[in-house]
Amino acid sequence: MQIDTRELACGGLFVAFAAAFAYGTVDLPLGSALRMGPGYFPLMLAIILGVLGLVIIFKGLGRAPSPIGGVPWRGLLFILAGPIVFGLTVRGLGLAAAIALVAAIATLASARAGIRLMLLLTLSLTVFCVIVFSYGLGLPYALVGPWLAPFLPGR
């Protein structure tokens, strides 16, 4: 028998989410339909989601696989890393360095960008953002964070 792997994965993912959310309601009081507790509504939704997921799987059985297409693994890695690195460094390194890091990481996501483009983009984006966000909009974040303090020339 043929199986549409895309539908299988899709339904499976929904079922997995449903199970995770249902598990999350275990500790929550359910209450009754007339006096709903915090767990009632989400559990109902999780059940609905699970059923929908199963129906999607069921309908995928006996069908030819749908094309999924390639996955840009390199892009996936670097694009998702961008915001995370920004989050990890913006308080410690400050806004300027965090911006530079994200810009550099993001350029790495593309196979086409060379080292020259990366440096150019990093520099120009950092300068642009510092001017717009720090000076223009006055975001209340330190440009240079405490981690960098020891490396700066003292007074």
Binding site: I79, F86, G87, I99, A103, A106, L125, C129
Partner: peptide
Amino acid sequence: LFPAILVFCSI
């Protein structure tokens, strides 16, 4: 374009 988008989004 996309590195710029990513930077703006982060900020």
